[in-house]
Design a protein around this nucleic acid. Structure first.
Lengths: 335, 335
DNA sequence: TTGAAAGCGCTAACAG
DNA sequence: CTGTTAGCGCTTTCAA
């Protein structure tokens, strides 16, 4: 069938043209289904291409067409985290509708690495960049459409997709207050990220509005992984007056908290931000939101810019919903 | 600082050269840290590049260098599935060590779409292709290194990374037999995939070796999603003589089975293939294996080929381990 | 309906 | 140490 020598360079359009006995340009026209090609000629060219195993060189095409590829970059944390992979999944699904491919790159939650990646992807002439910033967010000398996810850009105006962090945290807080809790622990991730700040503030605001200050001794921040969360929750429960409820501000921390709570005779209440797999089975009440939709909306914003939209930056806010499954409805001991 | 007109095309190397008052080639040398550039000249070039916000055009470079990009493609199912995202994560981590970027594409578990994707990625001149085939596996007229994951290529010899499906299924079966079970249900996914076949055969072989045929009425295959799995398990449990144990052959099915088992007074035993998040918390015994390692090993095999290795195809087998967490150790009622 | 020439932005090869 | 020339594989003029 086709050539199989791995060392050989792939056949070029002019080889196809030569084989078909036509000019380079005619071959190009035929393979691109452009008008003004005699049917017989077109057939001959296609046959020659098949025989040679010809494959268009996208690099050359894109260079000639203006130096811009069919790629969109996504810079985020590790895809092993279900949040990021859901975002990637949603973005990919949307991009493919426009013939665009997704390049995923892991910033390792490190600002410097992220900066390098921006550079590397821009060199590859991606059409747009979707970024879940690792905190500060990149210094933006971009030249391509930029969309920020989960965390807003640092001051500079840019398209972004955010979760209703404030509202979600508020609803969790109000739910626990309504359940009769006062001593509510707040276990949060790195405060430097805007999303965590918003969740903490939403929670705080709800407490203030309810005139409850009993939670303040139980604030723990910068808890970044499940193991630390488990330990932190354990420590809080060992206090003389332990909290009767917990609010954890992301899926990792919720998981950690659940490990600490497992097997306790009278477990405290727990509400977690972010939904997760099997949460229904284990009965965890969460502030849920559609992570796949985040990726999809980000891709849409990017595609609008690619298509020439030059209006002011837009922000899409993904709503949250409190999903009650049991853990958040446990009452405090004295009730 | 830098130019910000979105319509303007990015600055080129010759613009940088002109601004620095040197020739094109000198600018190229300076920016690529090649030898034989006077320090002063180098500095002037770099300044000019900074002022213009210059960014190398990777398309042009790669075209000139031989038409091959710094991209490696991964074709798999939806990244929302933790199996695929773990593979992607592992592959990305390994590739980046060599300055390669990962392009992820979703085949939607559809052979035709997969075929298109192979074409699209080859056009983009990826350096290698990692494929988790959607069943049959693509007709391979590639020209770039190909690595198959999870499912071996269709006859054609190629590098691949496989799970020890047979051994893993066998160990699950033997574990349940050792627990005193005879009526063991086997709930499997699409039989057309080689990995499912291997799991079913491993299980069957163990039953045969133990002289147990009591499981045969409880074989259910082509159960492809969690909801169907839940229903199937429910139906099996409603039989006059229900099975006393279940073996589910992937994470989705295990999840479905767990939903069906939840709340039952005397639940049957359950062992699932594939580990999953929170399995420890919910006490599910599984046949675990390192999914991230699959991606990593696939990337390694690909990189070896990129580096010029031309030996015979290699197969890496990822081992499995039975992780006992309770669900698989439940005894049959009569014991 | 077809073809010849030019050139996208860069690097390789060879001078100066 | 620096510059000139050519050309990667393709598409875009423009002409036949």
């Amino acid at each position: 069938m086709s050539e199989e020598d791995p060392a050989a360079r792939p056949p070029t359009l002019s080889q196809v043209a030569a084989r078909a006995g036509v000019s380079l340009k005619t071959a190009s026209r035929a393979l691109n289904d452009e008008p003004n090609v005699a049917v017989g000629t077109g057939r001959r060219v296609r046959e020659a291409a098949d025989q040679l195993g010809y494959r268009l060189n996208g690099l050359a095409r894109e260079l000639r067409r203006g130096g811009t590829s069919a790629l969109v970059g996504l810079i985020s944390g590790d895809l092993a985290n279900p949040f990021y992979s859901a975002v990637a999944s949603g973005a990919e699904r949307e991009l493919r509708r426009h013939g665009l491919l997704l390049v995923t790159a892991n910033n390792d939650e490190d600002a410097e690495r992220e900066h390098e990646l921006v550079g590397a992807l821009l060199e590859r002439r991606v059409r747009a960049l979707l970024i879940v910033p690792s905190g500060a967010g990149p210094q933006l000398p971009a030249g391509v459409p930029l969309v920020f996810l989960d965390r807003p850009p640092r001051g500079l105006a840019a398209d972004s997709v955010l979760i209703d962090n404030d509202g979600g945290a508020r609803s969790a807080a109000e739910h626990l207050l309504a359940g009769g809790h006062r001593r509510i622990a707040l276990v949060a991730d790195l405060v430097r990220t805007a999303s965590q700040q918003a969740r903490i503030e939403g929670f705080t605001a709800a407490m203030r509005a309810a005139g409850n200050a009993d939670w303040e001794p139980y604030l723990r921040t910068d808890v970044h992984d499940a193991v630390t969360a488990e330990r932190t929750v354990g420590e809080l429960l060992a206090l003389d007056r332990p909290p009767t409820a917990f609010f954890t501000t992301n899926n990792r921390l919720t998981t950690g908290a659940m490990r600490a709570l497992t097997g306790r005779p009278r477990p405290p209440a727990l509400v977690g931000f972010d939904d997760f797999d099997l949460a229904d089975l284990v009965g965890t009440t969460v502030v849920a939101h559609d992570m796949t939709a985040m990726g999809r909306e980000a891709a849409r914003l990017a595609y609008a810019r690619i298509g020439g939209y030059t209006g002011p930056p837009r922000t899409v806010v993904i709503p949250t919903a409190l999903v009650t499954r049991g853990s958040g409805e446990r009452r405090p001991p004295h009730l």
